[in-house]
Design a protein around this nucleic acid. Structure first.
Lengths: 125, 125, 125, 125
DNA sequence: GTGGTCTAGACCACT
DNA sequence: GTGGTCTAGACCACG
């Protein structure tokens, strides 16, 4: 579990951590039930403050991706919250699609790009 | 040209304006060469500060979506900047794809969603 | 006597154990004078530390719900502590009522909910 | 808008602030659309850190009770999230009801107490 | 001037 | 030793 953070990015660090972990779960690198590093450990490893990692973990917990079981550990949740994602990302997706279109990408080309992004999260076949 | 802004959104207003205009261009609602409202007019219409609209226009100009021809008018650029979008949004797309995957969406389902988003920006067939 | 604990809950485990036992007494499942499992047994059954169960028992003893008679057994107290509950939970009740109200529940609806909660602890009519 | 906080309470300060504001909204003291004090102002008034107030506001925002409209203000939301409250508080209510029962309170007495708590949030009749 | 974010420490409850 | 909470500062994007 190695997170790559960009301190110069406009995306807040806690959001980058959150994103990296979501990607890790989706790719299978982080299996359901697997323990995540402690807040302190991850903070030290990334060179950020505990509070920053704490915020990321809190967000992930709220979204149902991870759980903390009170006995000293944070772990990947069994079945992530299967909320209504259709609406959730319609906005962001529409904008990305619009820009792709204006950049000259065909619908098929864009779909291929999206499929690649989807499959990119697959590490075991 | 009616922009719908959400003052309670986490996305900065200037970015929302920018996004709405990009969507308008992609959908064909804003044709190449067509004149955009003046900063003052748009600011008044949206109930926001002129500086906010100015920032959005500046960003769009920098991205090559619009041009300002010195004699007072801002217009949609003829050929939008066909920059390397593959890299620009690869990150965002990967995260959206990962979340869709964790929410139980299949690759085909996600591709369909993406195609819909692409086609969604089409107002004249 | 089967306690259902949620390790991922924000409520401390010892408090969950305490709550479950209070509910058991109120429902009649645990009759006055009835013996409770030993700390060791309950800890093993629940998969938690003995100290955790000990803390719960200590709290219940302090509140007058159970008694320990020195010869080894812990049992449900005859007449539970009829303390001033009006004050004890006035705060929590007010907040729950406020949230119910803001969620659109009428006074009668809320009262019905409360009656149900009261009666819910009734297992023998 | 005067918040009374108990620094010695087991309830976290940010949660106390959150609760007080929920009560304020329910009582009508805080009308929909009304502006809340700034984080800084409330922090100073309460003698706590900005971050603590920030956390409370963040929680309230997430729950749909308040909104921040990007132009420099936090205000009471128009229509609070009418989520499924039936389940949300079943747990807490059951425990309170059980304790009330064990303390000798009748069902009618408990219902009266609940109605009072509900009506307690009414400041204008 | 607003909220958003981050830091570098600290104490505490829980297990 | 874990996460939860809090403090007292600070910088920045936004409007």
């Amino acid at each position: 579990m190695l997170l790559c953070l960009d301190m110069a990015s406009k995306t807040p660090i806690y959001m980058q951590i959150r994103n990296e972990i979501v990607l890790g779960i989706a790719s299978g690198e982080l299996a359901p039930g697997e323990k995540l590093p402690t807040i302190r450990a991850l903070a030290e490893q990334c060179g950020v403050n505990m509070m920053t990692v704490n915020k990321a973990y809190g967000l992930l917990r709220q979204e149902g991706y991870i759980t903390t079981d009170r006995r000293g550990g944070t772990a990947v949740a069994g079945s992530p919250g299967a909320g209504a994602l259709g609406d959730k990302y319609a906005g962001a997706l529409r904008i990305i699609a619009a820009e792709a279109r204006l950049a000259g990408l065909s619908e098929d080309g864009f779909a291929a790009l999206c499929r690649e992004a989807y499959r990119g999260g697959d590490s075991n076949g």
